[in-house]
Design a protein around this nucleic acid. Sequence first.
RNA 1: CGGAGCGUGGCGCAGUCUGGUAGCGCACUUGACUGGGGGUCAAGAGGUCGCCGGUUCAAAUCCGGCCGCUCCGACCA
Length: 571
Amino acid sequence: MSGLFGRTLREAPADADSANHQLLLRSGLIVQLAAGVYSFLPPAWTTLLKIEQIIREEMVAAGSQEMRMPAIQPRELWEESGRADSYGPVLFNLKDRRERTMVLAPTHEESVTDLFRKVVQSYRDLPQSVFQMQTKFRDEPRPRGGLVRVREFIMKDAYTFDVDDDAFQLNYLAMRQAYYNIFKRCGVPVVAVQADSGAIGGKQSEEFIFLTEIGEDNIILCSSCGYAANQERAEFTRSQAAGTVGDLEEVETPGVTTIEGLANFLDIPAQSTAKAAFFLVDGQPTFAVIRGDLEVNELKLINALDALEARPLLPEEVEAAGWVAGYASPIGVDPARVIADPSVVDAGGLVAGANRVGMHARNVTYGRDWTAATVADIGMAQAGDACAQCGGSLEMKRGIELGHIFKLGTRYAEPMDATFLDSDGERRTPIMGCYGIGVERLMAAVVQANHDELGIVWPPAVAPYDVHVVPLGGSDEVASAVAEVESALSGAGLNVLVDDREERAGVKFNDADLLGAPLRITIGSRGLKQGQVELKLRQDSDSSSVPLADAGSSARDALAAIDRESSLIAT
RNA sequence: CGGAGCGUGGCGCAGUCUGGUAGCGCACUUGACUGGGGGUCAAGAGGUCGCCGGUUCAAAUCCGGCCGCUCCGACCA
């Protein structure tokens, strides 16, 4: 340990917020170079290699072949798929000496699709499943949380190609199961949730989420039926709004520009109002209508309109569109520009704006007073809403996305003209899937899920060291006992860290707790008088003594026991 | 990109308001004592006070600009 590259810190650097970030820094495992850019020192690298190996084994077991694609890619490849712009700001651009623009790849759908069209010709070559462990580069707008969101990271990314949807399902389910196995073996509990596919594209996707308060995603969960979805796509049942339909009438509402103000002014519940929200959707001003007590989910809006991007309209743009902020009404608006949530379509007699400053309208009713070209779920699910599956009460929790699996369909194969010749002689487009895991992020989650107030408590499967040997005192008998134990442990195939520093016992114990090897063996003259050494599991508070000669076999037994145990409790 | 905060030795911080010797704890080096849960004593090494410019006899401190990092949001696997 005296020769270890890296040192432990008694105090965590001030920049670190979460437990995993603080512990990774304090234990000397990672060092930051720039925002979202880290070095991984020898113990961290050992753990990352172990995590990679677990992933590798599970991917191979699921029928995938490991390969390797380039990180530097010509930008034209990205223009072919149409993502040069949509992925835009996240792409690291650089120029080679011939002034050709290259990008550092943030993901590899384009490259693998390019490979497919160069390598695969026939249905006889399908199905295919390939994966790689590879460094990705993403110029994130805001790196955060230590290793949780970084700009350079190792991703295990896998890609599948199938002749049709049915065949694809087999690959997808195999990957899904492999993901559960991977996270379980790493000691991190996860829940699979329905998600939006985001910039990757495609039709369906599931995220594997580690639920933790330091997560950056909001997850909607139903404890009654098990429904789980990212908030950005979670469905929910709208509560019934009591609304009787009367005649349309205007009411003066001076200075009332918010739903809350309106509800107070008229002494009605927010559910009895309709809210207007204005967005620029793929360059088109769009009038979204939703019940006053709900919020618009921009992602659902984008998906409902089959659009690429949306943002709130600026005040001057609202005005230019002829809409009156605070008093906007869907009445009289070109229905082609209007999208309505079912909450306002099913409810009659709502209070909405009257399109004049200081005026609202009562009994506004869909179908009679206004219509929308699109009626779709554009509501944001919140804690307490009713589950769309079973009616139970939804909860919301924070979580970290550790893995994401996507059904891509023909999103890439089609624009990039990747096809194969089917058995009937027809040229067809393959159904693709892609499957990603952030390796360093997974390590951060392992630490977050396995620590106490003293330090990391590594699950044996991914621990940098299996055994932390603490010699106490500098006597010859201790030194020879340490040598004997070390050789017995190494002979048993265990990775051993010997604290050979001239430090006091307390310093060594504290560092052992911080570094978190599953098993600690203390060797001091006190025990050696009885011919014994002390074994202590990091996860336990008590220790036991064993004869010096049995140290190797006892260590192996103890580690095997907790490995079995942890694989039983992690889900 | 909007909002907030921070930048002084490896880590944690004080000093800045009110300009004048760069300081504390931990860590590090050497020696002695000590020796089973972050020891004691002694002697040391280590800092362009983020960078550039300005004001001033004099700037860590005041002024201007820039850069970096963190957090909230926007965005994003």
